[in-house]
Computed example of a mutant assay.
Amino acid sequence: MKKIGKGIGLSYYGTGYGNGFPDVSRAIIKLLPAGRIGIYCGVTEVGQGAKTSMRQIGAEVLDIDIENIDLVHEDTSLMPDSGTAAATRQTYNTGNAIKIACENMKKELLEKAKIELNLNSTSGLTLEKGEVILSFFPQKRISYKKLSEIYYNDVIIEAKGEFTAQTTEMDKETGQGAPYWPYTFNACAVEVEVDTETGIVNILKSTFAQDAGRAVNPMLLEGQMDGGFAMGLGYTLFEDLNLDKGIMKNNRFSKYLIPTAMDMVDINNIIVEDPEPTAPYGAKGIGEPVTIPIAPAILNAIYDAVGVRIKELPVTPEKLIKHLRGCKENR
């Protein structure tokens, strides 16, 4: 017999190292030949879209096409430390460092433009599409490319930025405090079909809402949500190490099962934007949080369908049948 159930999972997640631990990111911005902008920072790309989102933040501050920005982030001889790609911290922490560095770079560009345009101050100078322009007399302008020709060999135009996240240590006596900032929130609802004869659980549909502060790149964000759902699905229903006295029995992919495209459903993703005032353009990280509510939602849906509360993952068919039989025997 096949039974249908619905479940919801909710979560909140504190980003960054937390609990008073120094959480610092740094960045250097340079004007490169041909007027290109170089962003130098240790924001490691592990699939979260850092190569794109960090360049987008820089492009926004300096009003230049993202295609004209080079991100140097995997050469420790060239870039400053930006902390680890962990704790969902890079968008918030390193994004802030890049934004600060670019704002400092903007001041440098205005100062150099003032000299080259023979002006007596930077008042009225603005950045527009790769140029420094005197807003009330736009005939006075100079491109980043021209500035790079003047200031690349002997004097390089560059600026630095550093950001330290605000985090407080919890009280050791009471366990109270605010160890993380900021927090991100999400909710996932699923509908499942449970076959009580075979123990197989199929996901029928899902709606997933994720707080992102401000979506720097909505397409990448939805990709993260889809990926987080797939990882949560595998964690809940498939991935079984089968540890026996410390020995991993399922030590190859022929036995350690992971979800495939055939196991996924089309997810109704909802991006919730409530800008975080301390974040770069309001954006918060969502790297790890997107995996958290999936398992609770699926487990609650299974319970709604067959009345059995599973507390050990993964919910393999064998395990579910055992619980169903045990439930019948106890009645």
Results as ranks from 00 to 15, higher is better:
Y256W: 11
I270Q: 10
A230S: 12
D274W: 06
L221C: 08
G199Q: 08
I286G: 00
R214Y: 12
D226G: 03
V194K: 12
M264H: 06
P275E: 14
A212D: 05
A283T: 12
V190Q: 12
I270T: 05
M225A: 05
A230Y: 04
E273W: 07
M225K: 01
G199N: 09
R214E: 07
A283R: 02
G287V: 06
E273R: 08
N250D: 03
L243Y: 01
Q224F: 05
E276Y: 05
L204S: 03
G199P: 00
A279P: 01
A212I: 14
G213S: 07
P280I: 12
V265E: 14
Y235L: 07
S254E: 13
F238M: 12
I286H: 01
I200F: 13
L221E: 11
N268S: 14
S254I: 09
S206T: 14
M248H: 01
I286S: 04
A189Y: 12
P277G: 04
G228I: 07
D195L: 09
I247A: 09
G282T: 10
E197N: 15
Q210E: 13
E273K: 12
V192N: 00
I247K: 14
K255N: 14
L220D: 07
D226V: 13
G223L: 00
L233A: 04
N250S: 01
